[in-house]
Design a protein around this nucleic acid. Structure first.
Length: 480
RNA sequence: AGCGGAGUAGCCGAGUGGUAAGGCACGUGUCUUGGGCACACGGGAUCGGGAGUUCGAUUCUCCCCUCCGCUACCA
């Protein structure tokens, strides 16, 4: 297997990541212009596959897709106090339109809780209207100071679910259900293991009661927040006057949730599996699962090889790279870089023996197999590869997670790992959910990533900062 | 946004007060094809933008823009 970037590239991980995304002058998945991202064909195809996986799950849990405007009246933004304050620094505001100064500016949506709250109040009157389970696929704008391809761009694509419920219990169930959907897609589709947990109070979404998240570990040991699910309580219900009449005839405010994942997932995917040769895509998200490269020397070989190539490719659902210009070597390189899981090689030798060469992207191993056996073998290989990628990533997460029982240890571990590898580790320690503790982490550039929903360690203990009792270890790490 | 660095062809990159080397990529031809073929020829640059100094500025000065690193902010 190609050496993992965590050891191969050390501190150059960021540069390596840029290389994989840009692929030199080929610029395959994406490029960036003034902080905004152009997603190219290979990157967008992955997003489309990911979208479908997510959308199928949303539909299966009774959600409906809708679309709300990109431009939100500024006054809407200002109705929920904590929400305005949290988002104010990163808002893009439209003040001039049609050549005139606007009486009321629009903000370009940084998220849609406000405008959806406005419509919830028009659409919801009775408990019979609940739950209202909506989702929208959209682009949003947040004026970030420092952008990084896929991970943080000024404009990005995402999915935002917004739901309204008659009780807090039901809303909380929804919050956790959707967190599970995200974890399912991350682990079983992206082959990216995640830790489900709750954000600390100071890290929660502006305007939420609580934020839940999935955290993944990249190859260099840094954490990536990969999806969030918010318990909004009645905050937006009250701000937008979303009231309903219960079966008992009483008026109450709705309990809302919102949840989202973005094109950041593609960044996580790249940083989870790719190597120095380029992209590595898990088969379930590979736009092309297999490419067949025909090899021939002489004109009389060309006909039979191409004929067999197309026949076999059709049988197994592969694409034939029958371009005339590039040599087979150039083609191997081309597809390897783009993360195609399996490259098949078919030449005169194979025609003579009825075989075909199969190369796996993630291990680089070549294997000769019978042409007749390929149709049965390919799906197996792909499914094994999907599993392998997950196992490798899971193993990495495990070996790079360590326990610590004092704040000094946490700091030492993170400092040492950063010095050696330029990355990080997940440090599990007992820490109270308190802004004081969050602030203490900041001193060494780490954060409490989440308080895991499932405690896989030793249960309760004393906070390593305040000494107060807490019920489990939390994840501390440096992050993107 | 603060501090630091940098902008020369699609990409990388040398260099100069007298309009610019090399490599990759691109085009054509020959040759090749089981891991980025080779060779030959060829096209492509208002040297980030504006102003100033100068006989002459890509080079020096000033302003602006953009990009990169650290700080900061976040899906």
């Amino acid at each position: 297997m190609a050496e993992s970037p965590i050891t191969a590239r050390g501190k150059d991980f960021a540069a390596w990541y840029q290389d994989v995304v840009l692929q030199g002058d080929m610029a395959e998945p994406a490029e960036i212009v003034k902080g905004c991202m152009v997603i190219k064909a290979n990157g967008y195809a992955v997003w489309e596959l990911l979208q479908r996986e997510l959308d199928d799950r949303f539909k299966a849990t009774d959600h409906q897709n809708v679309y709300f405007p990109l431009l939100i009246p500024q006054s809407f933004m200002q109705k929920e106090a904590e929400h305005v304050e949290g988002f104010a620094p990163e808002l893009a505001v439209v003040t001039v339109a049609g050549g005139k100064q606007l009486e009321e500016p629009y903000v370009i949506r940084p998220t849609s809780e406000t405008i959806i709250g406005h419509f919830f109040s028009k659409w919801i009157q009775s408990y019979r209207d609940l739950p209202m389970l909506l989702n929208q696929w959209a682009n949003i704008v947040r004026w970030e100071l420092r952008t990084r391809m896929f991970l943080r761009t000024t404009e990005f694509l995402w999915q935002e679910g917004h739901t309204a419920h008659s009780t807090h219990e039901e809303a909380l169930e929804e919050v956790l259900r959707m967190l599970d959907v995200y974890a399912d897609v991350a682990e079983n589709v992206m082959a990216m293991p995640v830790i489900k947990g709750m954000k600390t109070k100071s890290e929660k979404f502006a305007g939420a009661l609580r934020t839940y998240a999935i955290e993944a570990m990249m190859q260099n040991g840094l954490a990536l927040q990969s999806g969030t699910s918010h318990d909004l309580g009645q905050n937006f219900g009250k701000a937008f006057n979303v009231q309903f009449q219960s079966s008992a005839g009483q008026l109450d405010y709705v309990w809302q949730t919102s949840w989202g994942v973005s094109t950041r997932l593609i960044g996580g995917l790249i940083m989870s599996h790719s190597d120095d040769k380029g992209l590595v895509l898990p088969p379930k998200l590979a736009p092309k699962k297999a490419v067949l490269v025909p090899i021939y020397r002489k004109d009389e070989e060309k006909g039979p090889v191409l004929e067999a190539a197309h026949r076999i490719a059709k049988e197994v659902g592969a694409k034939v790279d029958d371009r005339e210009g590039p040599t087979p070597g150039a083609k191997f390189f081309h597809w390897e870089r783009r993360g195609v899981p399996v490259v098949l090689e078919l030449g005169p030798r194979d025609l003579a023996s009825g075989t075909i060469v199969l190369k796996r992207r993630h291990t680089g191993l070549k294997e000769v197999c019978g042409q007749d056996a390929l149709a049965a073998k390919l799906p197996e290989v792909l499914s094994q590869m999907q599993q392998d990628l997950y196992t490798t990533a899971k193993e990495r997460l495990k070996t790079n997670t360590v326990l610590a029982d004092s704040i000094g240890d946490v700091e030492d571990i993170l400092r040492q790992v950063t010095a050696e590898k330029g990355g990080g580790q997940f440090v599990m320690a007992h820490v109270k959910d308190d802004p004081v503790c969050d602030a203490r982490m900041k001193a060494f550039k780490a954060t409490v990533r989440c308080i895991p929903l499932v405690d896989e360690y030793d249960g309760p203990g004393k906070c390593i900062i305040t000494g107060e009792p807490v019920d489990r270890r939390v994840v501390i790490a440096k992050s993107y």
